[in-house]
Design a protein around this nucleic acid. Structure first.
Lengths: 322, 322
DNA sequence: TAAATTTGCGTAACTAATTACGTAATTAAT
DNA sequence: ATTAATTACGTAATTAGTTACGCAAATTTA
């Protein structure tokens, strides 16, 4: 299949399906070769019951990794063929099933086929330098740990956050700075006096006071903002405030990038601490602050009604690098 | 999947199917993640048309390894969605199709997804010590060379011919010796005077004349016979005759085992040549004799009407071993 | 040039799985 | 002792493919 080589490993799903079909097609003919009237799809169920003990439909389904309707259908086909019998049912919900006498006799009959097929496939597998059987097992394990979807999501996030640029404030960002903040504030709380002051006049109320504003740009569009406001309580410290990320750009770690950049900025300005104020209903935000190193503190005066948690982080030289 | 480990590599078909399903399930969600309205099953067709040139249904089918009805269905779905257009048809049988403008625009849109998925799967594959992608490729190649069915058939034959025992004549085999021969002779020709003589009195007409009879036993049942009859024309030679294999035991190389054993026997008795007489309508038999080393000769007198070919092989010491 | 064959495609029916949903039996909670 | 929740199963609809078959167009052969 030249095509799949061209299309690359992202086509592995289609390619796997083709190989699977090729193998199961042959499987059907192999049963005929041994004069065993059994459909290939029955195999897992048959094998699961081969030890002789009785099992339930869902039990078998879990064991062989099928859905229960699939097993249910297979079982009824096998009952019709006389290979399986319904057994005891003290619990009338359950369908205890086991091999019938005929099914047991098949167990003997099928042994030669088992060994031949096992030997043939093992030899085939050994002929290859990459062990397909082991590779499947490893993939199953790795996908159990983290699904393909999650792996792709992470890859996407990684690529997208690489494309995000953090820049310093320019007058043309003023609009976005106001809008992104007003959007989330008014959806969770209501805009307060102090909000209007700083959002309407960032130059005067933030920058001219010794503060800074950082913006996150994705394809030249402002998708996130935050401000470092100089504090005047003795220590050399900043307040991290007015952080907002566009809902359309969520999931790209923009908050984290902005936070990191803000802490770096504070460090480069010689700050010892960064404070912030927030509200515990903003769970993702609080969790982001934690990741950035902020710890809960108390006792600072605040002009904001919505504030019910205060946090702070000590700045150490490592922030200048990361 | 503990179960499949237990069931062994013969369950690789079922196991592959499960892995395939798991992967394609995630694939569907990945398309959603990128807001691309395309079904995973469309991917091979879309990719095959991505270069921009027009192709036919069967052309695409061959390229991507699907059946043409499958491609036909996919194409009509994609036309309905506006991704594909029917193009020129100077040959009215053919359906030339190519990406529409919308389809072309998807090409751009999907690039990020391609790279993310490719990177994610590549990383996943590298995490495993056995390379699944390469293993699939090798299996495809090996199965192209020899299908799984043929591999199993060969394994079966090998096992079964290992179970065949070659033994010397005993009086209780006389019946089988007669029946197996009469069966095939009378189905192709008719029994002649000389047949009755030797089949009815093997002791007198074969063994007492310095000849030998070999039988092939499978589970203590006679499934094949042949005779070495001493020749009296100067040279120290035997005639290989009365070879018969039970139809129920065909395909187990019993003819070859008997032939080999007969030649070994002749060699151990110091013979220089072995002759035989046959008929060219018995193609499998002639081909077997060739494999055993017999060459066509002419000119020997024969009592049999049905004989239209004579063959002989020189015995050399190597026969004693093999 | 007519007849036979090949090619290309579409439709229908089938396959081996899935999800969605309903229902009866059992178990847990009030 | 009811009521609510859970468990086990079956049925129906869906999915992504497959073979089987038939028809019309094109090509080859006579």
């Amino acid at each position: 299949m030249e095509f799949y080589k061209m299309a690359g490993i992202k086509s592995i799903g289609s390619r796997l399906r083709m190989l699977t079909n090729k193998i199961t097609d042959d499987a059907a003919q192999i049963y005929k070769l041994y004069n065993i009237e059994m459909q290939p799809k029955w195999f897992p169920v048959f094998y699961a019951l081969s030890e002789g003990n009785e099992k339930t439909i869902t039990g078998i389904a879990q064991e062989i990794g099928h859905s229960h309707p699939s097993v249910s259908k297979i079982i009824s086909e096998m009952i019709e063929d006389g290979l399986i019998e319904k057994k005891d049912n003290s619990d009338a919900r359950r369908s205890m099933v086991g091999l019938s006498e005929k099914g047991m006799s098949y167990k003997e009959k099928i042994q030669d086929q088992y060994t031949d097929v096992e030997d043939a496939i093992e030899a085939l597998n050994r002929q290859a330098t990459n062990d397909l059987w082991k590779a499947i097992e490893e993939w199953e394990f790795l996908l159990e740990q983290k699904t393909l979807l999650r792996r792709v999501i992470e890859q996407k996030k990684k690529r997208e956050s690489n494309a995000v640029l953090i820049a310093s404030f320019k007058p043309e960002y003023a609009n976005a700075f106001r809008q992104l903040n007003e959007e989330w504030i008014s959806s969770y709380f209501k805009m307060e006096e102090a909000d209007y002051r700083s959002l309407d006049n960032p130059q005067e109320y933030i920058l001219d006071q010794g503060g800074h504003i950082l913006v996150a740009l994705l394809n030249d569009e402002v998708v996130g903002v935050c401000a470092l406001m100089a504090m005047h309580d003795g220590e050399h410290a900043f307040e991290l405030a007015k952080m907002a990320v566009s809902p359309s750009a969520q999931g790209k770690s923009i908050g984290w990038l902005l936070g990191q950049a803000a802490l770096n900025k504070a460090a480069s300005l010689g700050a010892k601490k960064v404070y912030l104020e927030s509200n515990t209903i903003l769970k993702p935000a609080i969790s982001l602050y934690h990741k950035l190193g902020f710890q809960k503190i108390a006792g600072h005066p605040t002009p904001y009604e919505r504030c019910n948690i205060q946090m702070a982080v000590d700045i150490n030289p490592s922030h200048k690098k990361s």
